[in-house]
């Protein structure tokens, strides 16, 4: 489907309102295949809404969103196909508590990809090994720590062999000592060439893996550029203010 020049994700003047609140204002963004984009900004800036629009967990009201060349519309068939190509990792993990770790990982490959069970389990074990928790496969999510759960969530998304991975503040709900294990997993994933869009406050992670950092405030993209440009020579006052606040905290 995708040729070399077609962007993996393309947002064109996207607008969204929650009631009267204008949460996305003319947001345009292109993410190339293999590119790693970090979206940052103060809370309420619309960054989570933006990333959730990309797999239509939120529905945008104006503008166009194309994922892998397909436009997001009300067509649920096409939407399910797009969603199966786009992995998502949530702030609150959202593992399925009634299924084991292994079943969490094999569910979508078996039911969406129609993969035979044995093959799906082998695949799941491969990814659980990659996130370094193969020994937890038979346990239930409630028996794992937050960091382990988030790594399972990453493995679960990877089992669908997605073309794009979306991360919605993946470390914000974690205790400090568990943040590193999740970030390490994400860095490894980035090194493997995955296309990634990541909403995060972890500026160290952004510096290390991002090709581009997008700064959002009050629903619009204020500034974007390489991590070096953004952090060393911010152009706008809003970004300067944001950086001074976030760096003071670290």
């Amino acid at each position: 489907m995708s040729n070399g020049t077609q962007p993996a994700i393309q947002l064109d003047k996207v607008n969204k309102w929650f009631g009267q609140l204008h949460v996305l204002r003319d947001v345009s963004l292109e993410v190339a295949t293999g590119e790693k984009v970090v979206v940052c900004g103060p809370s309420g800036s619309g960054k989570s809404t933006l990333i959730r629009c990309i797999n239509r967990l939120e529905v945008h009201q104006e503008g166009r969103i194309l994922v892998d060349g397909t436009e997001l519309t009300d067509d649920t068939r096409a939407l399910d196909t797009i969603r199966s190509e786009v992995g998502m990792v949530f702030q609150s993990f959202n593992l399925f508590p009634h299924l084991t770790i292994l079943e969490n990982c094999t569910l979508a490959p078996i039911w969406v990809r129609k993969m035979p069970k044995a093959e799906a389990e082998a695949l799941a074990m491969e990814f659980l090994t990659r996130v370094k928790i193969p020994e937890q496969a038979k346990k239930y999510p409630g028996q794992l720590s937050g960091g382990q759960q988030q790594r399972v969530a990453i493995a679960r998304a990877l089992c669908m062999r997605p073309k794009i991975m979306l991360f919605d503040e993946p470390t914000s709900a974690l205790d400090p000592e568990m943040i590193k294990e999740v970030l390490d997993t994400m860095i490894e994933l980035a090194d493997s060439g995955m296309t990634m869009v990541c909403v995060t406050h972890e500026m160290g992670f952004a510096r290390q893996v991002a090709d581009r950092v997008v700064f959002m405030d009050r629903g619009e993209v204020v500034e974007s550029g390489t991590p070096h440009e953004m952090f060393e020579s911010p152009q706008t006052d809003r970004l300067k203010l944001f950086l001074s606040q976030i760096l003071r905290g670290h």
Binding site: N55, V86, F90, F96, V112
Partner: peptide
Amino acid sequence: LPKGQYEAADALGLSY
């Protein structure tokens, strides 16, 4: 049920 369970299932591409 928390909304996240619906969203996680949606995000994996499971049909209704």
